[in-house]
Computed example of a mutant assay.
Amino acid sequence: MNAKLTVDGSLCRGTALCVALAPKVFRLNASGEGFPVVRLLRQPDIASVEAIVDCCPNGAIALEMENE
């Protein structure tokens, strides 16, 4: 199973929690908003990023599961 990772820039407030928890997956853009540098995830990466999705204080991060 794969998962598509997105960050809604209109909800992101630049707390950088995602970057702190997964610096290989997230970065901040010039406006200070988080964005995924890895957009398509596979297990076991999905499980670790799911926890970060739940930690985002503004609910800006989403994982959409896809069937292979």
Results as ranks from 00 to 15, higher is better:
Ala62Gly: 08
Gln43Cys: 06
Ala60Lys: 03
Val19Tyr: 07
Leu63Met: 13
Leu40Ser: 10
Ala62Pro: 04
Asn67Ser: 11
Leu5Gln: 01
Cys55Lys: 11
Arg27His: 10
Ile46Val: 15
Leu28Pro: 02
Ala60Glu: 04
Thr15Asn: 11
Leu63Val: 13
Cys18Lys: 01
Ala20Ser: 05
Ser10Asn: 12
Ala16Asp: 07
Asp54Glu: 15
Gly14Phe: 03
Cys18Pro: 01
Pro23Ser: 05
Ser48Ala: 08
Leu41Pro: 02
Glu68Ile: 09
Thr6Ile: 07
Gly32Ala: 09
Ile52Met: 07
Ser48Val: 06
Ile46Gly: 09
Pro57Met: 15
Cys18Asp: 00
Pro57Ser: 15
Glu64Ile: 11
Ser31Val: 09
Val25Phe: 06
Ala47Ile: 10
Val53Lys: 01
Ala60Trp: 01
Leu21Trp: 03
Gly59Met: 14
Leu17Ala: 11
Glu64Met: 11
Ala16Arg: 03
Gly34Glu: 05
Lys4Phe: 08
Gly14Leu: 09
Cys56Tyr: 06
Glu68Thr: 07
Thr15His: 08
Ala20Lys: 02
Ile61Ser: 02
Ala22Arg: 04
Lys4Ile: 13
Met65Lys: 14
Cys55Asn: 15
Glu50Asp: 05
Gly59His: 15
Thr6Ser: 14
Arg27Ser: 14
Ser31Gly: 06
Val19Leu: 14
Asn2His: 06
Glu66Ala: 09
Asp45Ser: 06
Glu68Asp: 13
Glu64Gln: 13
Gly59Gln: 10
Val38Ala: 01
Gly34Thr: 04
Glu33Pro: 00
Ser10Cys: 04
Ile52Glu: 01
Asp8Ser: 07
Ala60Phe: 04
Ile52Leu: 14
